[in-house]
Amino acid sequence: MVRLTINGRVVQAEKGEMLLVVMNREKISVPAICNHGAVEAFGACRLCTVEITKNDWNGWKNYVTSCLYPVEDGLIVSTHSETVINLRKTLLDLHLARHPHSEHVRQWAMEYGITQTSFEEIPDGDDCILCALCTRICDRMGFAAISTVGRGHGKEVAPPLNEPPPDCTGCLACAQCCPTEFITFSDSGTSREIWGKQFEMITCKECSKPILTKDFAETLSKTRNIPADYFEVCDECHRKATALTMGKISQWQREDTAS
């Protein structure tokens, strides 16, 4: 156990825990866009930067990304000091210059009072902030269908060789978790398209509502040992069927007590 001070409040934490995890638990909020509970911290967005110091640092301070900083005894953390706010403003200012058309980036900048970037705007900048949350989640799920490619300003998220990724199952986790909703997909009811790959959807055999892609269902059946017929009916029709089964049992009970 270690004791540290965050914004004047003494909190306890396990040794080696990341500062952001401790702050989340203590309901102390800092912006953390590239952070997700399913994957390890990555430190891409830098917005969770906080000010740290210790009593024996003779007034010296350091600025660290809280998601990657393991807590230690006697740490004094400030999440909203003037310097930290200015640091975050600069980061958001840069984000805004790079992604001027993203509503999400605009919203985050607005929260820190920035409506217009002070840097030179990239007019054709896309909405991908390169947080790599999509690729990390894809790895975590065991598919690793997409990855970041290139370096420097040419870096982007893409499937191998920019061709439809063979390992993608069309689960949409990447698109669901993208903080700027940059990853696009289309659902037509019987088919789905993402990363340039076409998927056939399984539709409910009772009401023909699309459930999930055939590829994803096959993967789950194979790797997780789930009977394939579980995926043939949608949740609502499953509930109806459950009610009818339980209804039959209840009706027998009724008839039993009546006779």
Binding site: H36, G37, A38, I137, R140, M141, C171, L172, A173, Q176, C177, I202, I211, L212, F216, A217, L220, I226, Y230, F231, V233, C234, D235, E236, C237, H238, R239, K240, A241, T242
Partner: peptide
């Protein structure tokens, strides 16, 4: 369900044979 960890892939929604993950 830990909401912070869920990636909304809908696997559980499709897998539950009683339709109780929504």
């Amino acid at each position: 369900l830990n909401e912070a960890v869920c990636v909304k892939c809908m696997a559980c929604v499709a897998a539950c044979p009683f339709g109780c993950a929504l």
